[in-house]
Amino acid sequence: MALAGLFLISFLGVHLGINLLILKNDGREAFNIAAHFMVTNPVVQSMQWVLFGGFILHILLGAVLQIQNWMARPQRYKVEGFSHTSYFSKFMIHTGLIIFAFLILHLVNFFFKAKFGAMPEVMIGDHMYEDMGLLVIEKFSNLSYVILYIFWLLFLGFHLDHAFHSAMQSLGLNHSKYTPVFFGISRALAILIAGGFMIIPLVIYFS
């Protein structure tokens, strides 16, 4: 769970990096080249399967653990306690499910189109590239998509808030000096990743 999660965090970092290229004022050139690289490079292509594996492992394990956890308490409390703990840690399955549902939508919107669909093309230098950037801009010109994505990313942030430090703890890395730092990193990652992704639809919609 922890390892898969950490792997997914690293993927999100890469994904965000590429996405931010779309904001570069170069007629989507850099973004389209990067997107092209991602769908054609053999190393990235093979990593794609690892990534799929990571997603599936994380989701399946999450589901199995959650079912076991529900089974461990067949009768619930009348007054559910809210101990002073990391708040979002209690809702990982809920935030996870929301993220998962939107993930499918997201894959349909972009990934499958990029991979299998007919894409508009654009000439950059000597080569023809799929104009992935145009697709993104079209989508985010629609207000409902923007709201939907912001909403989704919010939950991604909630989910990430209990990600990094929790993974460290699961891997046995807890130390009176460093654990508070891990909590800081977690919070920072949640804000940076979710916030970073959010900037894109907002900027596109309002420009």
Binding site: L65, Q68, G81, T85, S89, H162, S166, L173, N174, H175
Partner: peptide, 26 residues
């Protein structure tokens, strides 16, 4: 059930046993 690192155990433990012990066990 499984540990999902919520830290509720530590917060409610009458002897304030730290979840750093859970990390050590992991």
């Amino acid at each position: 059930g499984n540990c999902t690192n919520t830290g509720a155990c530590e917060a409610e433990c009458p002897k304030e046993i730290s979840i750093s012990n859970i990390a050590r066990m992991n």
